[in-house]
């Protein structure tokens, strides 16, 4: 009766579902503790203690936050467009979390190994803008609408710079498959694209901050002028979906940085030659450590830099980052034709 389970197609679907469940639970755990870590790290940078009340050193704070968000009343504004209001946080969350499925955490640790992994992530991050703009529009509130418009303009402009900055990586690796990109990096003596692609890395880093609406580009939710931006009218669990979506997008961007510029799960060959016993550590540890560093980097920047003005944000995107990334493509392409790499 259960014979159909043995069919390869059905089996692969079941395997993918199991993998996705594991990935989503691990990711949600990371989201919960990323918020705790953010508050702690920024607290200490500002000579405060951060959350201290729930559990030792506030370690159970995310659990308390989650319970609060679950049981809070779900308020919908009277004149809101209900269908769109319901859909917006789901779009935002789904767009963020589906990007995780193509990221190779280790040699065979991924949900889907597709040939267009990089393009898939770009496509999903471009869909994320819908959640934001729809939320702003459906709330039927001035602040939310302005926040939504700002954010979608920002995401659209920085998406171009981000896509173009990744073209350098695509040229060097000769593939869009994230796993092949990581393997191509390991063939270089220094084991990462961060050095030859330093220009692309800079553009990608800045664009990643803007794409995930993080400080210093967190204009869509600039609380001093827009209350909370596009999710001003959201409460309870719908708000939590936006919040989780933002943190998952941060994790995706940090993983993409790791996989495309910092060698993914591999260590640079010269380090392995000097300290061969490091090869015994499973690669996923290096991947996760690199991702944690970049997440810390997000917080570090947030605690350091003040917010940009909106016109400055647009000027940086269109007049600095896009020309820089085009220059990077030109340089990389020329070096590739001359067979330098």
């Amino acid at each position: 009766m259960l014979a159909f389970i043995n069919e390869p197609a059905v089996l692969s679907i079941i395997l993918a579902v199991v993998k996705s469940i594991i990935l989503v639970s691990v990711a949600m755990f990371h989201v919960a503790y990323a918020t705790y870590f953010e508050r702690k790290a920024i607290g200490h940078m500002q000579v405060r203690m951060g959350p201290m009340r729930v559990g030792p050193h506030g370690i159970l704070q995310p659990v308390a936050d989650m319970i609060k968000l679950f049981f809070k009343e779900d308020i919908i504004p009277e004149k809101a467009d209900r269908t769109v209001f319901y859909f917006a946080p789901v779009i935002s969350f789904v767009a963020a979390i589906s990007s995780l499925s193509v990221i190779p955490f280790y040699k065979d640790w991924y949900v889907a190994n597709i040939n267009i992994g990089l393009l898939f992530i770009l496509a999903m991050s471009s869909l994320g803008a819908y959640g934001i703009v729809m939320a702003g529009w459906a709330s039927n509130s001035k602040y939310a609408f302005l926040g939504g418009l700002r954010s979608s303009a920002q995401v659209l402009s920085y998406e171009i710079a981000m896509g173009l900055s990744l073209v350098g990586v695509m040229i060097m690796a000769g593939s869009l498959n994230l796993r092949e990109i990581v393997e191509a990096q390991n063939k270089l003596p220094y084991g990462m694209f961060a050095i030859p692609q330093i220009l692309g890395l800079f553009v990608f880093l800045v664009a990643a901050f803007a794409e995930t609406n993080r400080a210093p580009f967190d204009l869509p939710e600039a609380e001093s002028e827009l209350v909370a931006g596009y999710f001003a009218e959201y409460s309870g669990f719908r708000f939590a979906l936006f919040y989780a979506g933002e943190y998952i997008a941060m994790i995706v961007m940090a993983s993409l940085l790791t996989a495309c510029y910092f060698g993914g799960w591999t260590l640079p060959p010269f380090i392995l030659k000097a300290l061969p016993w490091l090869g015994l550590v499973p690669g996923v540890v290096w991947f996760v450590l690199k991702v944690y560093f970049f997440i810390f980097f997000y917080y570090w920047i947030r605690a350091t830099l003040p917010r940009y003005r909106y016109d400055q944000l647009m000027a940086i995107g269109w007049k600095v980052l896009i020309p820089l990334s085009l220059l990077n493509i030109f340089i990389t392409g020329t070096l590739r034709i001359l067979k330098v790499f």
Binding site: I114, N115, I116, L119, F120, L122, A123, S126, L127, A129, Y130, V133, W137, F145, L149, S152, L156, E159, G163
Partner: peptide, 25 residues
Amino acid sequence: AEFLAAVQVIVYAGAILVLFLFAIM
């Protein structure tokens, strides 16, 4: 046609439709 699929989502859904939405809003 995986490349076309990605381009379909990036260009049509990600760029053109957002502009539609802007114009309508």
